[in-house]
Amino acid sequence: MKANTDSWGASLIIVHWLSALAVFGLFALGWWMVDLTYYSDWYRTAPHTHKSVGILLALLTLFRLFWRATHKRPAPLGNKVERRTSGLAHKLIYMLLILLFTSGYLISTADGRGIEVFDWFTVPGFGSVIENQEDLAGDIHEWLAYTLIALAVLHALAALKHHLINKDKTLTRMIKF
């Protein structure tokens, strides 16, 4: 374990911004692809890409949680209330991510089919636990996604507030290695 530090470290910074890109990309793609018409060029590729990126983000997030548990990280900035709220928000974001991965997986594997990740490898499916699992998992996946995006926007606004109003290092230390 590293000693308590003032820096997040290059790997975590990269993982953070990759995750941010993936989360907003997946949201936009998911929101758009559900209304595609049958003859759209994207009818098959958009869901395939959404699922593939989703699985890769799930793996990245698992790695990130492992890293988080085994490495020291910079102390949170701001007053007590801010530190508590941000801690809670971060935990919620991780929880929403895990639940999104799970619910998404449960849609596509409800019939026992696996999920192909970019024709690269296949995550096996285990079928249904409940009847019409794909419908319930789909509804949950949608609402979790809206919640996560709302929280991510709040997270970004809070970072901007730290940067512009408090003029502290919250944002810059997540950008500079």
Binding site: I107, T109, D111, R113, N132, Q133, E134, D135, G138
Partner: peptide, 16 residues
């Protein structure tokens, strides 16, 4: 009608 089954969960979800 919710019991529609075309042997593909994603398609069945769409059909429902």
């Amino acid at each position: 009608p919710a019991s529609i089954d075309s042997n593909h969960a994603e398609r069945d979800k769409h059909l429902r």
